[in-house]
């Protein structure tokens, strides 16, 4: 299981004595290092542990023995209460619907843009890519009021459609940048061969480029989904009615109002944490692969 691979046991190349002393020294040190890292990792997880510990306590239990004691009973009512009070199922659905739509739409838009920029190499592609890159850096505050105003004018304020459209564009700005640079190294021979076979641009896109870049596209879908799921500022401004809000917005507004008691807050936090952890477990592979792809590009 723990394949201690590629750890050459300090080859006894020359003078045996110094080598052995060195190994002994490192032997102790590495356990200390491991202990320190584990301690650090546990400290990172401490907040999660406290949340779990208190999400299932009765309010009385909490006020009697504080946040660090083990719960005396397994109390689910607090969480069920909270679930029903904020209609959490609906918030969950809203988040899934918005993040899912954005992930798919933004990947399609990125694919089209990148097809023109990376494979089509249209004139002025560099400045167009720079434009997308700048858009990706812009603070949302610099767009929010006009967006809010325009949405009001066209009747899209307080609709999920508005949030979907906005994030499709914002995410595809990054997707275009990434995909365009991936596509610029797309094997030319394949494109030329398909063109000689009489395939149109549209057919080349869907029958050649799309299948070959599916791994990258799926990383983008995962990224866009999680990024959109986690967004706070724009959904906060755009989704004012309760039944339209996403999980982060609903929880953030509740917390901002400071109306929840301690165990309810803890249950609420746990409900907010759980989907994130599920994504994490599901997508861990894709994520670390994608993160490294994003870093190098």
């Amino acid at each position: 299981m723990t394949t201690t691979q590629a750890a050459p046991p300090t080859t006894p190349n020359n003078g045996a004595l110094p080598a052995r002393r060195d190994r002994h020294h490192r032997g102790a040190a590495r356990w200390i290092v491991l202990a320190l890292l584990v301690a650090g990792a546990l400290a990172m997880l401490f907040p999660f542990a406290v949340i779990v510990l208190n999400a299932f306590k009765t309010p009385a239990d909490y006020s009697n023995s504080g946040p660090l004691s083990l719960p005396t009973s397994f109390y689910l009512d607090g969480m069920i209460d909270f679930w029903n009070r904020v209609n959490f199922g609906q918030k969950l659905w809203n988040s899934i619907m918005i993040a899912g739509s954005v992930a798919i739409l933004a990947v399609i838009v990125s694919l089209f843009n990148a097809y023109a920029l990376g494979i089509g190499r249209v004139k002025g592609r560099l400045s167009i890519i720079v434009l997308f890159l700048i858009a990706n850096m812009l603070p949302h505050e610099a767009l929010i009021y006009p967006l809010f105003y325009i949405a009001n004018q066209v009747g899209l304020y307080n609709t999920q459609l508005a949030v979907i459209i906005i994030f499709t564009v914002i995410q595809s700005a990054f997707g275009t940048y990434l995909l365009a640079s991936v596509f610029s190294t797309f094997p030319k021979e394949i494109l030329e061969a398909s063109a000689l076979d009489g395939a149109s641009k549209w057919q080349i896109l869907w029958r050649v480029v799309f299948p070959m870049s599916r791994p990258t596209l799926s990383v983008l879908v995962v990224f866009f989904f999680i990024w959109t799921w986690n967004e706070f500022f724009i959904p906060l401004v755009f989704l004012i009615s309760n039944d339209k809000q996403t999980i982060p917005v609903a929880l953030g507004v509740l917390q901002g109002d400071r109306l929840m008691d301690a165990t309810t807050t803890s249950a609420a936090a746990l409900l907010g944490v759980i989907p994130a952890i599920i994504f994490f477990l599901f997508f861990q592979r894709t994520l670390s692969r994608g993160i490294s792809a994003g870093a190098v590009k």
Partner: peptide, 17 residues
Amino acid sequence: LPQILPVAVAGIVWGWI
């Protein structure tokens, strides 16, 4: 792990702690 939390949720967790 903390990186995957929505910042608003991370804020609730810590505000509570």
